[in-house]
Amino acid sequence: QAQRGRMLHGTFQRKKTGRSQLTEVFSELIQTTGAAKWPSRTLHSTNKLFTAKDSLQPSEEKVGAFTKIIEAMGFTGPLKYSKWKIKIAALRMYSCCVERTDYEEFFNRCQMPDTLNSWFLVAHLHVWMCLVRMKQEGRAGKYMCRYIVHSMWEDVEQRGKVMGIDSVALKEGMKSMTENFYAAIFGYDEGILSDDHVLAAALWRNLFNRHCEDPGQLELVVEYVRKQMQYLDTLPGEDLLLSGEVTWRPLVETNAQSILKPPPTTYNDEGL
């Protein structure tokens, strides 16, 4: 490492008065990548290198010393809204992921088998999109994310029991699902902040389980994720925290201009 450091130091000393060759190479690569296109659609690319201080990160709420202490111990401090209201909204939001999604259309267009695992992969994709949206709402949103995931695992376990899956097999299956769930989250997060190549690769590994050979199917789901994330960003954070109501755009959009901001959700003082 010392030898390599001396070599780099000497290189930068020789180039300190002019533009380095490495910078020129990177500039050419960025220009080339930005011009890349799919055969049927323009490639979405992100040339900016995001850092932890960029605006994509939710703004940190100012909390007192006592709140910081109890949260460091694993507890949740006071939130902007009632915790039990947020829990109810989290359950509603998860219900929207599993009840308002056209699984049959996903299975047919993406050629996925009609199994519990395929259902989980599609539901997981929608849960992840909700998690990304709610994390933008500060501490209350992160608190809600915990109960969305909690509701998902309870639902998966109950569905497995109703289907008559053996308890041992169900336990092993849920263990595998848990590992795939957290691995997929990292892939999807990287894909949504990168270009369509990275997002398509994450969907191919996780949603399609590496069994997709039709690029048209990948392109369809990439477009679906992009428009859903854009649509979720139009929903007011307060409504999501108190109601949890989410509607989903169709997999195949008949009218792309129909993605409009929906009317505000109404709810009473109890959050119902």
Rank of each mutant, 00 (worst) to 15 (best):
P78H: 13
G77L: 08
K87A: 06
G64I: 11
N117V: 12
L131D: 01
F107I: 06
M134T: 10
K68E: 13
K85C: 03
V132C: 11
L116Q: 09
F75I: 11
M134Y: 09
S118Q: 01
S82N: 13
V63H: 01
T76N: 08
K62R: 10
I70K: 09
Q136L: 09
N108R: 14
F66K: 10
Q136H: 04
K83T: 02
W84R: 14
P78E: 14
E99R: 12
L121H: 10
L116P: 05
C110I: 00
W128K: 06
F107G: 03
K83D: 02
W128L: 07
Y81D: 07
T101I: 13
C130G: 05
K87Y: 04
M129D: 02
A90W: 01
C130V: 03
E104R: 10
V98L: 06
T115R: 05
R100Q: 03
T67R: 15
A89P: 01
E99W: 08
Y81R: 09
R100S: 05
I69H: 14
E105S: 15
E105N: 10
M93Q: 12
M73S: 12
Y94F: 14
T76R: 08
G64R: 12
D114I: 08
A72M: 10
G74K: 08
E99L: 13
N108D: 14
V122Q: 00
R100P: 00
C97F: 02
V63G: 03
S59E: 15
K135T: 13
G77H: 03
C97L: 05
M93C: 15
P58F: 04
C110Y: 00
L121F: 12
M112C: 03
G77W: 03
P58A: 10
F75E: 11
E71W: 04
E104K: 12
A89S: 11
E99S: 14
E71K: 07
E105K: 10
Y81C: 08
R109G: 04
M112E: 00
I69Q: 12
I70W: 06
C130F: 03
L79P: 01
V132T: 13
S118G: 07
H126F: 04
P78V: 10
I86L: 05
I86P: 02
T115A: 09
F106E: 02
K87Q: 05
F66L: 14
E105A: 14
P113N: 01
L91S: 15
Q136V: 06
M73W: 07
A89I: 04
G64D: 11
W84V: 13
C110M: 00
M112V: 00
F120Q: 11
Y103T: 01
I70Y: 07
G64C: 11
S118L: 03
L131R: 03
G64A: 11
M93E: 07
K80I: 11
I69C: 14
A123G: 15
I69F: 15
F106T: 00
F107N: 03
R100C: 05
E71C: 08
C97Y: 02
I88K: 14
T115Y: 02
A90P: 02
A65G: 08
V132S: 13
K80R: 12
K83P: 01
L79C: 07
L131T: 01
I70D: 05
E71M: 08
E71I: 06
E104Q: 14
R133E: 01
N108V: 12
